[in-house]
Structure formats: C-alpha cells, structure tokens
Design a binder for these strands. Structure first.
Lengths: 348, 348
DNA sequence: ACCGGCTATGTAATCGATTACAGTCAAATT
DNA sequence: AATTTGACTGTAATCGATTACATAGCCGGT
C-alpha cells in the first residue's frame, strides 16, 4: 500500500540495465538502442516511475520553472496572457510561478529573489516600472534570461513582446475624428509608465494629423484601474469646456469612466463617445458595448513564453545585444468598433 | 565577474564553522549559540549566499510548492483568490503553481501529474467537477494533502473553504421578494456543479418561504460565463410569460444577461430586476451597478492556503476523516444592494 | 591483421543542502 | 570526585538523477 515511490534504480533493475541507461533512454532516446529503450519504457510503465524533479534540477543546475512578474494579479487584463504563458510552458515541461510585484513586500524583493537566486530559469516581466538597475549591470552572465511582455524598459536591450501602442492609440483617435469629433480628451495611465507615453504620443499623432489642437486640460491622469476611471469622470465634470469624445488608455478606466458619467446622467455615446484599449472580455458586454483597441492577449503570452524558452536554450546569445533586441516582437492590434462611440451632437 | 554562486560550504568556511552549523543557523536558529548565529548571518551577508532549493527539497523529500487547480484561469472571479493564496504561500516560503483544469490536455492528466507525482506538497482545488475517484482510493498515504475552495466534492471527506451558497442565494431572492417581486426567474450554472445545486436550493428556499410557486420555465441553465448570460437572455425573450426579476448564479452571467437585454431595449431595473453572485470588481461599475452577493474572495484564498499549510505540517492527521472534515471552513457572505434591482412595474 | 572510429552501455563522481550520529565541554548532580 | 546532563558543533551519509569518463564490441579501411 504505502510502497515508496519507485526510483530510477528500480526501473534499471527491472529493465536489466544501468541507471545511466535509463536516464538516457528517457531524456535522450537517440543515445540508446531501440530494444533497450523499449525495455526501459516497459519497466517505467510497470513501476509507475516518475522522475524526481528536485534531483534532476539539482544535478542539471536549473530549476524547471519560469517566473512571471505581474503588476496586480487581480487585473483581468493579465489573465489571458498568463493562460498563454502557462500553455506554452507546460508543453515544455516548465512550471510557471506567478508573483505580484505590487504586493506589500515590494517588487524589489521579488526581483532579487527570482533574478539573482536560482529560483527560476527565466523571467517574463509584465511590469515596466521596475528598478532598471536590476536588469542591467555587468554580472548578467549568472542570471536567467528575461523577457518583457506588454510593458518594457526604455533605453535597454531587453527583448520584449509588445503591440504598437502608439499606432493603437492613433487608430482609436482617428476613429473618433472620422466620426466628426473635434474636441477629444484623453484619460491616460500613470505618467511614468511606458504604455502611457506611447499611447499619449499616438493620441497626439492623430490630433496633429487632423490639425486639431491638443488641449492640455483634457488630459486626465489615471492609473489604468477601474477606480481611476471613476475619478477621471469627476475631473471631466469639473471641466468648464468639455470634450465630446474621450480616449481611455485602458478598458478598465473606460468602464469606470462611463459608469460614473452614467451615474450623473451623462449618456454614452449620446453625450460623449468613449474608446478604450485592450478589449478585455467584458468590453463587448458593457452598456454600451465598448469600442476599443484589441490586443491579442493570449498570443502575447504564448509568444513571450516561446521566445523566453528559446533564450533559455541558447545561453550564449545573451551576450549579443543585437541578437537580444531581435528577440523582441511586435504583434498586431486592431480597432473594434462597438456602440460606445458615435457622431458628436454638434455634427449630427 | 562570473563568480559562481556561493554554496553553503563557502559560508561555512568564512564563518569558521561546519556546513551543518550553517544549515542549522539558517533553518533552526534555536539550535546554535547566539554568537555562532551572528557569525553565520554575517558570512551569509558577505557572500550573498542564497540556498539552493533543489538541494534542500531533494534532501527533505518535498517540493517546496503547492499547486492550485483552477477551472478557467481567464475567469476574473479567481484572480483575487489566487492573489490571497499567493500571499500566504509566499510568506511560508512556498511557490504557487497554477494549472488550468479546462486546458485541452484535460484535467485528469493535470491531477495525475500533480497528485500522484512528487511535484507538489499540497493542492488547492477550485474545481468541483473532477473525477472523484482521483481523490479517494486506498493509497492516499503517499499523496499530498488536498484542500478544496469555493467548490468541493459532495459526499467526500475532503475539507473545503466555502461560503454558504444556499444562504447567499436565499438572501438574493428574499431581497427581490421584499421589493415586491412575485415572478422570479433563475439563471443557473451547469447542472453538475455543486454551486449550481446549492444556489438553486437557496432560490427555492426563498420562494417556498414566501409561498411563491417555482415556475420551472423560469429556470434557465448557464455555465457561469458571460457568454452563457447572453444566451440566457435569448431564452428569456422566448418566454411567453416573463419573470419581473432574475437571480443569476454568477456576476459574469448577470452582466451578459443585462447586456443582451439592453441590446433589445429591455431596461434594468425598470423592466427586470437582476441580482448576481460573487461581487467581482467590475460589478459596482456596471450600468446599472449590480446588486449581488459578495464573497470574500481574497479571504477564501488566504484561508485555504493557511489550512493547507497546516495539513502539510501534520501529515498524520490526514488519516482521521473527522479531523479532515473539521479543517473545512464556511466564510461569511453578504448582500450588496445596488441599482440593478427595484420594485416591479406592477407593484409600483 | 591492425587501427581508428562509432555505437551502446556501465561505473562512479557529482549537484548542494540536511540530519543522524558522535563527540566535546562545561555546568549540575550525587 | 565521579557522573550525568545539556548545549553546541562537527563528520559524513544521504536524497535521486545526470553525465564525464571508461570500456566493450563492431565495422571498415589499409
């Protein structure tokens, strides 16, 4: 009943070979003859043998897991990305550890824990606001490879899987302009965030292209959360002159914004048009269904994981800054027009 | 530059003690004298030593990680629960692996992988629809402890952290009745799910208590997802006689339901009142803000993790079925009244 | 016939920490 | 004074798989 778990030695004995041969049959099948392989496999099946990962990892000096650093695990935007990462990693036999960088103990501790210590074979970082110093420095050799996704560090060689946020924002705003809007506001993310800057740039691009002035009062700062969308609506109410359309830098903020507007009797899209960014699951089912920029979230996760695994397999490549940059990838995004945008009152 | 990572031996040499003493100073500080401890700590700081977990786990015959089995990682309902689990586990020095049981390769493989093989020291299962056989059987001794959370297996001794779903549903429906509704429908979860049954029972409890008949045509089957809420709305439209209020077994379904109703010109709460279940983050910011039953999601995660860790520390206890059941815990839930419910037309 | 090269396998060292066991020394007990 | 006790520390075996190195057998070329 309580038989101990079979070890490689037991398999070897039953198959009539040495432990070395069993090990090879299982992890480098080409090295052993077909008959031997069959015998080993039979013995494995008979005993129900399962490898002890701690032993393998100890010997191979690796950990068998990758770590994903997420800002706000509770943000639904990340769920599909994680799911994509998990899928690829699990196919490669790797565990996925998820750590929330905004937890009380702080990001730095997490990074140190995972980056410097041998707790992971690779990192996927979804948070662009980490101490840059942690990722530069000379002693990069001993550390596991790092892949950024969604967000990234500007002015660094770190490879990243992203979308063209600037283009996305431009598409969103061009859509509003095409509808006839001339007074367009922006609910932005936190100022230190890369995405905020990129999307704000795209916002300005579109205005400039249409020769519309950018009104700084219509630039409202948020932090990508629902709550900050609500706060942005309050700011909007305070405005003497109000824009007829608003581009929100995340769907969550758009949702909070619309909800709060609605609470005060302002209708979307009749009184104000709103565009979001991300296309989270619920966006299509809000009232009104949200016009937004779709990011291929699952694909971002899968791609990031795939590339990280490539980097893990080629440790030398990390010395080569050019090769590193090329590991990055920009995935396509798409404007999804729904009902939260319409012609402005004045133009109808 | 490329100095190898320091090992316990290096620390021992610098501190002028043996490796055994270093090990003890680090993991059982009481066993060494204060001076020795200080010397070891100083040496650790000097070398930047970090323990190799693979080695520790190999020697201790454990894995240092717990696994969470989630149905649908992309469901935002689970994010806060995971975050609670991660918090507690990380404080205990445990890694958290998350596996999606609804992935293509199927739940059974995952279970086998994690439960039978030495890949985890404990499991938290958030999916009540797993093959029961996997958790019973005689050879339970060799396996890691399992804690259920949210969902559970009926007729089994497995401990679980839950809320009183039946009570929650009753509160929701009593609220509708108190508002004057006499024609109340239910959008349920998948029929094989425990939560579905519990909540349906609570629904009937409330009706029975108010001596209202339960109309089986107003019982619409769903699967907790947004999409199924949308489908439920279509079913509602097909009804000859329509209820004036609907209790949805999840917020996601309530959201899809309301959204689809709205798309066809039916207003909430003017034409129909809707109550959800869960109180996911976005519930308060839907239009209209959703009346729902709040589950303490972070607390559920923290509690499940805490209890699992207790079980891990007391391996003998698992033999004792009574003790096992007592490990379970029912956490409080709460009705949150917002704007998706109001008096019925006829009663106003 | 001999040698080099190749394939298939075995032997044993190795990864790095933990811990059973043994030993030391000083204080307490008889 | 002898013995016991307890606190502390060291030595070395151990966890289970991987892999460097050694070896054996076989084939083909000269």
């Amino acid at each position: 009943m309580d038989a101990k778990l079979p070890r490689i030695r037991d398999v070897a004995r039953i198959a009539g070979v040495s432990t070395a041969t069993v090990s090879r049959a299982l992890s480098q099948p080409d090295l052993v003859s077909a008959e031997t392989r069959a015998a080993v496999l039979a013995a494995v099946a008979e005993t129900g043998y399962r490898m002890n990962l701690a032993a393998r990892n100890l010997r191979r000096k690796q950990t068998g897991s990758i770590v994903v650093l997420v800002p706000h695990l509770s943000n639904p935007f990340f769920s599909l990305i994680l799911s994509g990462i998990a899928k690829v990693a699990s196919e490669a036999g790797l565990n996925v550890l998820v750590a929330d960088t905004r937890e009380p103990d702080g990001a730095d501790r997490q990074i140190a824990e995972y980056l410097y210590n041998n707790r992971s074979d690779g990192l996927i970082v979804l948070d662009g606001n980490l101490t840059e110093a942690m990722f530069s420095g000379d002693d990069r050799k001993g550390r596991p490879p790092v892949m950024f996704a969604c967000e990234w560090l500007e002015d660094h060689d770190q490879p990243a899987v992203t979308v063209d946020n600037r283009l996305g924002a431009r598409l969103a705003v061009e859509h509003l302009i095409a509808l006839g809007h001339r007074h367009i506001g922006h609910v932005a993310g936190p100022p230190e965030n890369v995405l905020t800057r990129q999307r704000a740039a795209g916002f300005r691009d579109a205005l400039a292209k249409a020769r519309l002035p950018a009104n700084e009062r219509w630039f409202i700062e948020g932090d990508f959360t629902l709550r900050s969308g609500v706060a942005a609506a309050e700011r909007w109410f305070d405005l003497a002159e109000r824009p007829t359309a608003v581009f929100c830098s995340s769907d969550a903020m758009a949702c909070g914004f619309i909800s709060q507007l609605n609470g005060h009797g302002v209708r979307v899209p009749d009184d104000v048009s709103v565009v979001g960014f991300d296309d989270i699951d619920i966006a299509a089912h809000l009232i009104p269904p949200l016009t937004t920029i779709r990011q291929p979230r699952a694909l971002i996760g899968e791609t990031a994981a795939t590339m990280l695994i490539q980097m893990m397999r080629l440790p030398d490549m990390r010395e080569d800054a050019a090769a590193m940059r090329e590991m990055g990838k920009v995935l396509p995004l798409e404007l999804v027009v729904r009902d939260s945008t319409g012609r402005p009152r004045s133009a109808s």
